[in-house]
């Protein structure tokens, strides 16, 4: 996967990071009572009963092992030349694609899923990931990231507090518009680029809507599980018609 020298260069920095983190958590552990504890009004002042004893052992061991890893990394030529390892990855374009996937994922989970209807948010992300990553074209990847970033940043900026996650639906409409525009752009841009339409890109809009829609219905009404954003633009209507139209109709049919 990696050449050994590059791996050791990464190990060098990881070991330093791990040592730093273990020292930080050892310090945080010192905030947990060790020799004298008063939990729920009960004095329990023995070191071997302390909630800190196992964490102390864990972080001290991580510290020792990370120092061991540091020594190994240095012995095997891993101390200098870190920058070359990163640029080698960046040169292949793999690093940029990786950052794009991570960005779309973070926008989806931290901005869209909590605030936007699940079907609409997922349709946008599915469309973006299929279009942006099916071919290794930087332009398609960039368009996909921008298409997800705009509604995600809007949702974050306009409805950041938790109290606003479920009530207004303007972010739902903007996400829906972003999905439609991205679907059209994907079809046109791919055709202009290749002179023909790839099968995966052609089916992407239908797949992107159907998969989350069927999934959310199966989860909510089949598996009876909780689903994100029940007051979303689409799910609100589905839930209403399930209880007001479909269920009474099914009950009447069964009678």
């Amino acid at each position: 996967m990696h050449d050994r020298a590059a791996l050791r260069r990464q190990d060098f920095w990881t070991a330093l990071l791990l040592a730093g983190l273990s020292l930080f958590f050892l310090w945080k552990t010192s905030e947990i009572p060790f020799f004298r504890a008063n939990a729920a009004g009960v004095e329990s002042g023995r070191w071997y009963n302390s909630a800190a004893i196992v964490p102390y052992a864990i972080f001290a061991t991580i510290l020792v092992l990370s120092l061991g890893l540091l020594v190994t990394a240095i012995r095997q030529g891993g101390a200098p030349w870190l920058r070359r390892a990163v640029t080698a990855d960046a040169e292949t374009g793999g690093f940029a694609r990786l950052c794009a996937v991570a960005a779309i994922m973070l926008f989806y989970i931290f901005a869209l899923v909590p605030r936007v209807d699940f079907t609409i948010a997922s349709a946008l992300v599915l469309q973006a990931l299929i279009y942006g990553f099916h071919e290794t074209r930087a332009r398609a990847t960039a368009i996909a990231v921008v298409a997800v970033a705009i509604p995600a940043l809007y949702a974050l900026a306009m409805h950041f507090p938790r109290s606003e996650w479920n009530t207004p639906q303007d972010d739902d409409w903007i996400t829906l518009a972003a999905f439609v525009i991205l679907a059209v752009v994907a079809l046109v841009e791919t055709r202009l680029c290749h002179g023909r339409l790839d099968k995966a890109i052609a089916i992407a809009p239908v797949l992107s809507v159907l998969v989350p829609f069927l999934l959310v219905i199966a989860m909510a009404f089949g598996f009876r599980q909780n689903v994100p954003n029940r007051t979303g633009l689409l799910f609100k209507q589905v839930e209403y018609h399930y209880y007001v139209t479909v269920k009474p109709w099914l009950a009447g049919k069964g009678r």
Binding site: I109, V125, L129, I130, H134, L215, M219, N226, P228
Partner: peptide, 18 residues
Amino acid sequence: QTIFLPVVLVLTTIGSFS
């Protein structure tokens, strides 16, 4: 995999949430 991996992201999201 560029078709089914995005679907897996949606599956894991709703599964983890529920």
